[in-house]
Design a binder for these strands. Structure first.
Lengths: 336, 336
DNA sequence: ATCGCCCATGTAATCGTTTACATGTAGAGT
DNA sequence: ACTCTACATGTAAACGATTACATGGGCGAT
């Protein structure tokens, strides 16, 4: 019980059996006699033996681990996805490890340098910005979730971002807003692009002209909401958009925070719609009208899909369809 | 380049050398002749060979991986700690994997079932609720951060929670509040306990009586802030505490959100202080007066400490002292 | 009593690396 | 010409488990 680095051989010696029997006693208790099983167990207790997972992984070529690569752990958006993944995986006997994919972009690493050809049985990738060549350079089952990679054939779990943007714009339009600005996400990001496209096409479909000043660059963060708010406030009061559709809730909160502190009121002076429906949105002041993403379902579906791939089960199914989004009307939007 | 599951032996055969030479060409390029090195490299390219980290880990008994166990990834508080850990680790050649420690509490698993005696070289544990017996049942270097385990001798990086609570209470007292309520964190949690103690002792030191109704149970979440707000509102208006010290920022936001929606104003009708200084606090409405935790520094220090332990470097130093906290005065507190 | 089968256990190969040690070759020093 | 060094490479033993196959004893059927 004291040592701590005992091997299966130590146990075998103490129990007076072979290593094979120890291994069997542990993995298939029904295949060894009660008496020897007891001797083995007691030896295990005596030595404090724990199986070395690395050795086991090498021999069995399995790890029972799913690796999740997330682009930015600081983004509160991922938490619920991760917990859903963890739950589903656990119910199938898999553990979950998470890694920040940011270092992968910078250095010359690729996915496998972290995941290791053998460190995980499958990967869930939440980062669409990774070089596709690097990503597919692996035999491991890999599914994308939330974000995706254009022109790749990877299984992908995502929502209909264009539709989400459209719902936001239509909601604002129905409240008699015609000048609906957009604070975008980071350029190059697939989500940004989809939401931006959705905004543009919805505006066109509703015959609302998009003024040059109504597009603000951003990056999903609180800070980018604040700086967009500054730019918006700098415009002459009678020439501003009367509503803003933000590419993320955080960004929306940054915007609202800043304009409120400058003496304007939301939604009386400007309506704001976010995207994501993070936990805080409901409690923010004013509570945030936003596009709800089914985060738990995304995480669960991603986990199920990758596990099915790992097990070589039939992966055909309704997986292709994007998950539905939903407009949640709260206190940050009002009739003009 | 096509296969994908080629071993060092395949490379050796194609290059016409032994596996030892391949291994050396990759790990110590200076110890093989230019010519053979080139042959090896070209064989590597031809086969798409990637070293199998599991085999390497087994052989070298190292992984260059640090495992971080966090109690609750949904808590936005951890993000910045994690990114600091990741950065520092990377600069020392370590990768970082993160796992949710929640499953460890429930099942019969212990730390090693996830980390694996061999899967990581060291552990940073952010969860103080784990059974100490299970935690210390490992040879791996292990450091605690943020939370800690009573009566254990594990190296611990933390802030002075009692002092933080004291600063909050003193600030409110200086603003002429005497009835200062407290919304606590989960019972049994070391942070909750320390902050609760700090509140109580500061109140005593200032000769403020603690009324029975001024303690609210909670659990750090938004929701617990809301339900505390309900209880507080249910009290007769002239008999309520005039200020509230919350055990977390999220909780404070939940409280403020609810009372504001019920028609009260913060800070005019009630002052609120949070704890943590998460990103959003500055942008919340009103912006949140809170106790700032140096999250990046905690993460960095934890990483440095565990790496020093892994390398058997002298670990003595100023590590014992808790990191300083700081009161950040913003818009949620006002003179009574 | 003999044969054959089953069950519990042991033997040893295997997973894919790294690395201590052995081997062989070439050039320097005498 | 001979030895000694130095260096490049090969040989083979680890790392710690799992598992196909071999072995031997016990027991039922004949």
């Amino acid at each position: 019980m004291v040592t701590g680095k005992s091997t299966i051989l130590d146990v075998a010696r103490i129990a007076g059996v072979s290593t094979a029997t120890v291994s069997r006693a542990l993995a298939h208790p029904d295949r060894v006699q009660q008496a020897t099983r007891d001797r083995v167990m007691s030896a295990v207790r005596k030595t404090g033996y724990r199986v070395n997972p690395v050795a086991r992984n090498l021999r069995t070529q399995r790890t029972n681990v799913i690796l999740v690569l997330a682009p930015n752990l600081a983004n509160t958006f991922f938490s619920r996805i991760l917990s859903a993944v963890t739950e589903v995986a656990a119910s199938h006997g898999f553990g979950v490890l998470i890694a920040d994919s940011a270092p992968l972009g910078d250095h010359d690493l690729d996915v496998m340098d972290l995941s290791g050809d053998g460190r995980a049985d499958g990967i869930i990738l939440l980062d669409g910005a990774l070089d596709p060549l690097r990503v597919t350079n692996t035999d491991l089952p890999l599914v994308m979730a939330c974000e995706w990679i254009e022109d790749s054939t990877l299984p992908t779990i995502a929502i209909d971002n264009v539709q989400g943007a459209r719902l936001a714009v239509e909601h604002l339009s129905a409240l008699n807003h015609h000048r609906i600005a957009h604070i975008a996400g980071p350029v190059g990001n697939v989500l940004s692009t989809a939401r931006h496209d959705g905004w543009r096409s919805a505006m066109q479909a509703l015959d609302h002209r998009i003024e040059q000043n109504d597009y603000f660059a951003g990056d999903f963060t609180l800070g980018s909401g604040v700086s967009a708010a500054r730019q918006w406030l700098a415009q002459p009061a009678d020439q501003r958009a009367t509503a803003v559709f933000c590419a993320s809730d955080e960004c929306a909160m940054g915007f609202i925070g800043h304009v409120t502190r400058q003496g304007l009121r939301v939604p009386d002076d400007v309506s704001v719609v976010g995207f994501d429906d993070i936990d805080l949105s409901e409690h923010f002041l004013p509570s945030l009208t936003t596009i709800h993403q089914p985060r738990r379902r995304m995480g669960a579906r991603a986990a199920e899909t990758v596990i099915r791939l790992i097990r070589h089960e039939n992966t055909a199914g309704a997986d292709a369809a994007p998950l539905p989004v939903e407009l949640v009307v709260r206190g940050s939007t009002a009739r003009r």
